[in-house]
Design a protein around this nucleic acid. Structure first.
Lengths: 137, 137
DNA sequence: CGGGATCCCGCTGGATACTG
DNA sequence: CAGTATCCAGCGGGATCCCG
């Protein structure tokens, strides 16, 4: 009986379940990186109007130009974002979510909603944990 | 008008929306790290029976002992996992999801389902992107 | 058996300067 | 304006050894 958990195949052995490493991990790793979710969030604010590079840069206070460029490249590579280049002077470049990019907004929101409702509790647990640990040192 | 996207406050300025960096990012960063989701997935397979350290280790083929320990510590710190220590010889240590840990399974599944349904398309986009880029070099 | 302690390599990502 | 190039510090994470 092949089962599956979080999109990942599970093999049952005599020692218990074994997870098979598989490709979706690379998607999650990308989304979990430092800036990707922020860029997607910002782009999702204007679903039908592309955003300029500079507007994205200003919208994410601490992002460097380099990291914004790299993050957008990766999203474009994954087919989640399209890049529109206009050869003007000065040049104008706009970005918007693709259909695929928009299709992830709802599932993503379900998860971030959980985080929004829970992170205070998590922070409290962390503080408590750290305090107890300090007592042992 | 204060808005919010993915649990993150948005300020509207004359230049467009600006995202405020905030604490939930640290939760997402943790979940996006290399092993956390795998550990949670494995623990979720036995919702009412704790799992031993060794069983977790065997269930995630390529994880090192060190990283499993660190990942479990962080989950315990976040109050998502409880650790049960039995002073026997040899010692036995078991882990299980807390109620809070279980509460994230459904939202998480919504998101990983999207990944499961989409990652082949994403991989295809990546291959296509890389191929075009190679033409330019 | 579970898990510290230590060493070390590679990648992520920040700062800065230069270009079409 | 929207990049690219280069340099470099920090940290994630693997390998190994030791300990209750």
């Amino acid at each position: 009986m092949a089962r599956e958990i979080n999109g990942r195949p599970v093999i049952e052995t005599s020692h218990g379940p074994v997870l098979t490493p598989c490709a979706p991990g690379s998607v999650l790793a990308r989304l979990g990186d430092k800036w990707t979710i922020l860029v997607i969030s910002l782009l999702s604010l204007s679903p039908d109007a592309p955003m300029r590079f500079g507007a994205l840069r200003r919208g994410i206070p601490d992002i460097s130009q380099r990291m914004l460029t790299l993050t957008l490249r990766n999203l474009e590579r994954d087919g989640l974002v399209v890049r529109h280049y206009y050869t003007e002077l000065p040049p104008r470049v706009e970005y918007e979510l693709t259909e695929r990019g928009k299709s992830m907004l709802k599932p993503l929101a379900g998860f971030t909603d959980w985080i929004r409702d829970t992170w205070q509790d998590i922070e409290a647990s962390r503080a408590e944990f750290d305090e107890k640990e300090q007592g042992r040192n």
